[in-house]
Amino acid sequence: MAEERLLYTWKGRLVKAGHAVGRALVSPEPIGFLGGVDGATGVVVERGHPLEGQSVAGRVLVFPHGKGSTVGSYVLYQLAECGCAPAAILNAESEPIVAVGAIIAEIPMVDHLPIHLLRTGDRVEVEGETVRVWRAVEDQGQVR
């Protein structure tokens, strides 16, 4: 395992309070949970989505904002029940579907973050509105 260094410490806007640590899974595209994520497995099933085929379970899920049907809030609840919810959710700008979903599913969530700086695989800690990001040392040279 490569050495990891603390790269960023951000204060975002709190949507759902909590504490979580996990590896980032970054989507440049919005996520719609109803029809987009399998509520029983956590696998992204939307055709052509950048995360298609990957599981959100246990990851710090990073995406710009939600999209799609308001019933999507209950898909997040279903994910939490089956133990395949994301560890935390980070958005650029949250909207009601995912925000309400995170609250009812008790998934820590923060928005108003520069999520374009995050990469899949980064180690992320979410604590209240504070977000800390670690990255392997050899990868840090690539940061612009």
Binding site: T70, V71, Y74, Y77, I104
Partner: peptide
């Protein structure tokens, strides 16, 4: 709203 079992599903019912 969100009253139809068809839309809510089992997860919504349990919630």
């Amino acid at each position: 709203s969100g009253v139809s079992y068809r839309n809510l599903g089992e997860a919504g019912l349990r919630f």
